[in-house]
């Protein structure tokens, strides 16, 4: 290489399923499996010196806020001695983890690249893997890992998700609902780079910096969530308050955020010092906002929810909570809506 070799920490946090030469699906679920897994991917050594670290081996559905804190702290430990970090992660909650890491890792001056695989250990029968493993050659599972490692050596200083042919700011990424191999979609300025004949990063990426990383892993996960829909019952709010909820987050409508029947319960929450956050990307600010609720219309839902938890770990005072929630921490706010 023209420059000295990079040293990249490869953190196993689920989502590491690959197909072996004999057709098995192999993912790292415990530390002892790492060596055998790396033997299946000898080409990774061409890219960088890899320091593998086991953090978590369960499915994405088992990822918890406590694990986020553990992951952030582990990244903080490794940070001074590596040039970048790659994290393997299960598909279902990777966007939440990426967003939370972006809030927890302050003054980040190196890449933290999350990537994923839809192949899981449980898929051992042809019926389980139909349409996934049989499309393996086109799925690019190994390609995701190669691309993630390469991005981790590049001039980038933020938390990103690398999947398919896209490099995306983690806190401006949503799960895609469309067909195709792009499992995730960036919104706002979230598309940071593309893979075509190489990996190209765009001009608006946050570049590497020399400052010292500060890990702020404190959070409070007593955030109750509710999706407002025609079948929603306002009394559920009371039950949430009684359960020890410390902040309330509603996936609300865009015009009037919730039915009138909700108002008494939301006032009860406010009286008890519980901030009420309404999230809808298409909602317009109104005078009711700030009086009754804190409107978030310029972040993804995943970024808003994880930021709520992160801010709640610092303050429960409503006005301070609102100010911190509105402050741009890691490029999560979509400029068009600000």
């Amino acid at each position: 290489m023209a420059k000295s070799r990079s040293k990249i920490a490869l953190l196993f946090f689920g989502g590491s399923g690959i197909q072996t030469g004999d057709g098995r699906i192999f993912e790292v679920t415990k530390k002892e499996e790492i060596t055998a897994w790396l033997k299946e991917l000898p080409e990774l050594g061409i890219l960088a010196d890899i320091e593998p670290v086991f953090v978590f081996g369960g499915p994405a559905s088992e990822v918890t806020p406590a694990l986020w804190s553990a992951l952030a702290k582990k990244i903080g430990e490794l940070y001074p001695s590596v040039d970048g970090v790659v994290v393997t992660h299960g598909i279902d909650t990777i966007v939440y983890t990426g967003a939370m890491l972006s809030f927890m890792l302050h003054n980040l001056g190196k890449p933290v690249v999350l990537t994923t695989s839809p192949l899981a250990k449980e898929m051992q029968s042809p019926a389980d893997s139909e349409g996934l493993v049989s499309d393996y050659r086109n799925l690019g599972v190994r390609a995701n890992l190669i691309n993630a490692l390469q991005v981790a050596t590049m001039n980038l200083g933020e938390v990103v998700i690398m999947h398919g042919n896209r490099v995306m700011r983690a806190n401006q990424t949503i799960k895609s609902i469309g067909p195709g191999q792009n499992f995730f979609e960036p919104i706002g300025e979230g598309l940071l780079g593309k893979v075509d004949f190489g990996i190209k990063l765009f001009g608006h990426v946050r570049e590497r910096g020399k400052g010292k990383l500060k890990v702020d892993a404190a959070l409070d996960d007593h955030v109750c969530t509710m999706r407002i829909q025609p079948a929603s019952h306002a009394e559920q709010i009371a039950r949430m308050i009684a359960s020890g909820c410390r902040a309330l987050m509603l996936r609300s409508y865009s015009t009037l955020p919730y039915p009138q029947s909700f108002i008494p319960y939301l006032r009860l929450a406010q009286e008890k010092g519980i901030p009420v956050v309404c999230h809808n990307l298409f909602a317009l600010k109104s005078t009711r906002a700030n009086e009754e609720y804190i409107l978030i219309n310029d972040m993804t839902y995943e970024a808003a929810l994880t930021k709520c938890m992160w801010v709640l770990g610092k303050t429960r005072e409503r006005e301070e909570f609102r100010k911190l929630l509105y402050r741009d921490v890691a490029g999560e706010r979509i400029k068009a809506n600000v």
Partner: peptide
Amino acid sequence: SVQDSEVGYLLAYAIAQ
């Protein structure tokens, strides 16, 4: 003959694929 950061990447990618 002159290596850049893309050389190793392309080689690794092509082997993986």
